[in-house]
């Protein structure tokens, strides 16, 4: 089936979602269609870079993820959506083993990145985290200068050469669309930046170490619409070069930036597929109910 502008909001969709999406018009077109590649292409060729198999996750006795299996395609943006507490952050954090830091957390199943199970005993977690960058909900600038923040990851791997650092810092800040705003004040404290700038700084910091995968946990939830729009644009550009996984509570954001969407509910993966499909022809009644605001 070919989904195009006309079919959106047609009979396939429950009534509630129609105004929801159709009010987001830009130049008379629904926002999310405007910059989308043809659906077939993105579906035909999804090379999974992160393979999750039969993943169970426990916080102590509490089960937070249950039998989650999905393949997250390379160089695409994948959105994780679902009601609060359904395990989105938990799933996201398993991709860079951030849950290692939580006492009592236990994991079963496998997460494979580029063919290697990252939960193998011999995984170098530090190396893994350099390949899989993470941006948090609350921006987390270190109490250092802008320059030192971006150079942080480089310095800890032992890059000291001023020229190299300068180059990468500039490149990363440009990628994060922050360069123009801070280029004259690289020595200024990162904490003096605005919230949106801080978040872009954190993205630059994550990009500086040259990751292949970028995980983002509600990166815009603390930002105003303007800053949000800038980050979304940024994500949209980043996915040409990076595999982006983004947790979001904002449906329109998921639609705008992601190619694929995974819907989680009570720790289970309910539905995973192309964003267009999920948002227009959800297969599961729970997905549909969530998208139409019946819960969550």
């Amino acid at each position: 089936m070919n989904l195009n502008d006309q079919t959106i909001g047609n009979d396939i969709l429950p009534g509630d979602i129609r105004p929801h999406i159709n009010t987001e018009l830009q130049n008379g077109k629904p926002l999310f269609v405007s910059h989308r590649k043809p659906l077939e292409e993105s579906l035909e060729n999804p090379i999974p870079q992160i393979m999750v198999k039969e993943l169970n996750f426990y916080y102590g006795r509490q089960k937070a993820l249950s039998k989650v299996s999905l393949g997250i395609p390379a160089k695409k943006a994948t959105a994780l959506i679902g009601p609060s507490g359904c395990g989105k952050s938990t799933l996201l954090r398993t991709f860079s083993r951030m849950n290692d830091l939580i006492a009592n957390a236990r994991i079963e199943g496998t997460v494979t990145i580029d063919g290697r199970n990252i939960y193998d005993r011999d995984t170098d977690v530090v190396e893994l985290r350099r390949r899989v960058g993470m941006v948090f909900q609350k921006s987390t600038p270190f109490p250092k200068s802008i320059y030192d923040n971006v150079a942080y990851g480089l310095r800890i791997v032992g890059i000291r050469d001023k020229k190299t650092l300068d180059q990468i810092v500039e490149k990363s800040l440009r990628q994060a669309v922050l360069w123009e705003e801070v280029k004259d004040n690289l020595g200024k404290s990162a904490l003096a930046l605005s919230g949106g700038q801080q978040q872009r700084l954190c993205i630059a910091r994550a990009l500086a170490v040259g990751p292949e995968i970028l995980l983002m946990d509600e990166p815009c939830s603390a930002l105003d619409p303007n800053a949000t729009a800038r980050i979304e644009e940024l994500i949209f550009e980043l996915k040409d070069d990076y595999t982006v996984v983004i947790v979001t509570h904002n449906m329109q954001q998921a639609v705008r930036v992601s190619d694929f969407t995974a819907f989680l509910y009570l720790g289970e993966l309910i539905e995973f597929g192309s964003t267009q499909k999920i948002f227009t022809v959800p297969k599961d009644r729970r997905t549909e109910a969530y998208l139409t605001g019946k819960f969550g």
Partner: peptide, 12 residues
């Protein structure tokens, strides 16, 4: 979050 951010950057 700051500790996590450091770890997420590949800090030991």
């Amino acid at each position: 979050v700051y500790k996590e951010a450091a770890y997420a950057m590949g800090a030991t």
